[in-house]
């Protein structure tokens, strides 16, 4: 009974576990930001099911629809990109808002879509290498 109770009050070990998870998260974040967001974002690559379905430059305003299990409206405006409309459940992708910095991405899990901002040039030859 006494042992059971003590398992319910906050202990020092809990603080260590919390600190551990937070440190791990910060380390991952640092690693990701350092290695994956260098340079200028010049190209937005749109992946569906892991395949590049479209590449576009952010300096040209455009709006189009991505069909899949659901329907995402993708908008490029003033060097930023967003999913502005979606009929997927939750519409987290729309809530993600506008992105413009390299390394950032917008994900629509229900539609299996990822929009990723990357550096580099717009080249079709590059596509196969990116897809692996």
């Amino acid at each position: 009974m006494k042992k059971e109770r003590s398992a319910l009050t906050f202990r020092r070990g809990d603080a260590v576990a919390i600190a551990g998870v937070i440190l791990f998260a910060l380390a991952l974040m640092g690693y990701y930001l350092f290695f994956f967001s260098a340079g200028e974002a010049s190209v937005a690559r749109i992946y569906q099911e892991g395949q590049v379905v479209r590449e576009l430059r952010l300096d040209r305003d455009v709006e189009f629809v991505l069909e899949g299990d659901f329907r995402n409206v993708v908008t490029v405006q003033d060097g930023k990109i967003a999913i502005t409309e979606s009929d997927c459940p939750g519409a987290d992708c729309v809530h993600s808002g506008w992105i413009s910095r390299p390394g950032r991405s917008i994900v629509c899990l229900p539609n299996r879509v990822e929009i990723r901002l990357e550096g580099g040039e717009l080249t079709d030859d590059d596509v196969d290498a990116v897809v692996q």
Partner: peptide
């Protein structure tokens, strides 16, 4: 999603 980049969301 056949994407390894997604782990950027993990932190």
């Amino acid at each position: 999603m056949h994407s390894t980049y997604i782990w950027g969301y993990l932190p």
